[in-house]
Nucleic acid binder design. Structure first.
Lengths: 337, 337
DNA sequence: GTAGGAAATGGGAACGTTCCCCATCAGCGA
DNA sequence: TCGCTGATGGGGAACGTTCCCATTTCCTAC
């Protein structure tokens, strides 16, 4: 394999008998002043040589890489691929390429990803932050849209599902069914900020005059195995809950499996509800009741906001989009036995 | 937001009182001849300015972008994120950034992705081909490793799970249980090439002297919904099978759901077996028997082969890695009723 | 036929690196 | 004192674009 150097704009120019400037004009499409006949000659030359514009060179000159980074915490949670798909579809439609960076909940890797964004001069970033703070993100000096609904990032556009609303919806559902001892399997992200889901849980208890029992709250990382462990801990308690809300479906599915293994009838003895509505949730046994998040749309909206900024829009105040989740009643919830 | 232009190597040089060449030497780390004292001065200047090497410029000069593309057909199938994780972990460890491109089984998008690779001068490509042919791939002139086990790409390294072996394993399992009428839900990729899984199926029938009934073979795209539809078609046949092998777990899960909805007892009336072992397969009801593929390792191996080539290795003959799947017996298979 | 101006095209610097090659300098032996 | 060596540092071209500005061509109206 020798290296038959890719043809450059100069090669095209020579073949077409015009200057590289003219070729550039043709390549960039904008019907800048170039005569039809010349254009045709140039296009023929491009075709003949198989010329392909070198984006690297172009980027250096224009400070535009046509690359966008998408940093997510956990590619193994089916929630994120669907968000990613929304982002990619939207960005690719505008000619941007999306680099998917997976940080595995690791703050160190998040930092590395930010470095990548800077060094490679990505045009933009869509990020579900793990530990990074508002100020550091500002220092990045790159158009950024956040995925999430917390308000720790006042300077940035963000798109999130309404977590508060989702927890409320889920709890309302359980309470309406008659549950009063409701467990919470709350996920832990590396962020130290107070957990939204937990706070909603507390609020809800106050609002409905339910007694709050700290023993009903378990925290663990967001994974199926951890969800199972958490459920075992809840079941081992002195007075187990009659219903459990899990921070996401992965946790809920883990909890469901652990409960069944422990001989607990679902939903007879125990109701379980999740949040997200990933594909697997509809195929568990029994199928999981959950609050469905508009995953694909989250991605689309985030990408749209980013693209607007890349196009030059500078809204004077960051936009905060909150998409509503929708209760998906399946078969893991029922009135307490 | 003004644009406080990122500092360049020149700014650093000026501040440190050396030439840009010297700064370059320090940045590139290779302890080329530069005195300790000078190096310290330069590092201090870098620190002070927050200088960050511009990879775009560097790429133009060196023809190295430190970017690798990973093109997969379906990010929504949990199989692929796990492969992707293997690729990313491995590449990132070597300083490469991985851009994940999702083609959604669309040959057009695959073409676009190839164009992206060329235009952006990615250093390498890991690809699960949809419709692209060996020759076109060669014309790309970029180090490439294929994901898959077919032999339509003699010129390229490839890493695949042993599909033949997986189908054999699955069918052996069913036959050992006593099944003789075995249905096949074969996935369709856009590729026109003969489907491996189908051929193994035929071979296996001959080897075991089983009658081959074309009515037992259904083909459909790789998705859960299509798997369900395929199962309904099989069940509607004159003489339905006593066991079904699905081309992957997504299809199998769809089939499982459809069968249950139709009132068919699993595995009492019908055995179902899948291929892949995605996470959701262990949480279906009953849990799905399947042939587990080493997804993460596939990614790691593919990335490793690619990195070797990027490092300059030029094995005289393309390397074909085939990883074995492992039968994961759960509860959807049993002797025919 | 010519001036004037619009339309089309070309020349060349610049983007921020890398890297070849040359300059400088200290130290040292003859 | 000279010249040599090895260590260190610098100058400047090159990578392939884009884009400002200058130049040429062409057309129209007088």
């Amino acid at each position: 394999m020798s290296k038959p150097r890719q043809p450059t704009i100069k090669d095209v120019a020579r073949l077409a008998g015009v200057s590289k400037t003219t070729v550039g004009r043709v390549v960039n499409g904008e019907d800048l002043r170039v005569a039809e006949k010349t254009r045709a000659r140039v296009l023929a030359a491009i075709e003949m040589l198989g010329y392909e514009r070198n984006i690297v060179a172009s980027s250096l000159r224009t400070d535009q890489t046509l690359m966008v980074a998408l940093s997510i915490p956990d590619i193994m949670n089916p929630f994120w691929p669907e968000v990613a798909r929304g982002v990619q579809d939207t960005c690719e439609a505008q000619g941007y390429t999306v680099a998917l960076l997976n940080s595995d909940w690791d703050a160190g890797r998040e930092l590395v990803h930010l470095q990548t964004v800077r060094r490679n001069r990505f045009d933009g970033l869509v990020l579900n932050p793990i530990r990074i703070a508002n100020a550091e993100l500002r220092a990045l000096n790159t158009p950024t849209v956040l995925l999430g609904s917390d308000d720790d990032y006042p300077d940035f556009d963000s798109v999130g599902s309404d977590s508060v609303g989702a927890v409320d919806t889920a709890l309302e559902h359980l309470i309406a069914l008659g549950h009063r001892r409701i467990g919470l399997i709350a996920g832990i992200s590396q962020r130290s900020r107070p957990d939204t889901r937990y706070h909603c849980y507390i609020d809800m208890h106050q609002r409905h005059n339910l007694p709050f029992d700290p023993a009903l709250v378990v925290r663990c990382p967001y994974s199926q195995a951890e969800g199972a462990a958490a459920m075992r801990r809840l079941l081992a308690g002195a007075a187990p809950p009659t219903a459990v809300l899990a921070g996401n479906d992965l946790l809920a599915i883990g909890a469901l499996i652990a409960a069944k293994q422990a001989g607990v009838a679902i939903p007879g003895d125990l109701s379980i509800i999740g949040i997200d509505d990933i594909d697997a949730s509809s195929t568990t046994s029994p199928p999981l009741t959950t609050v469905a998040k508009p995953k694909y749309e989250i991605g689309v909206r985030a990408a749209t906001l980013l693209l607007e900024r890349l196009r030059g829009d500078r809204p004077e105040v960051p936009r905060k989009v909150l998409l509503r989740g929708e209760l998906q009643v399946r078969e893991t919830t029922a009135p307490p036995g």
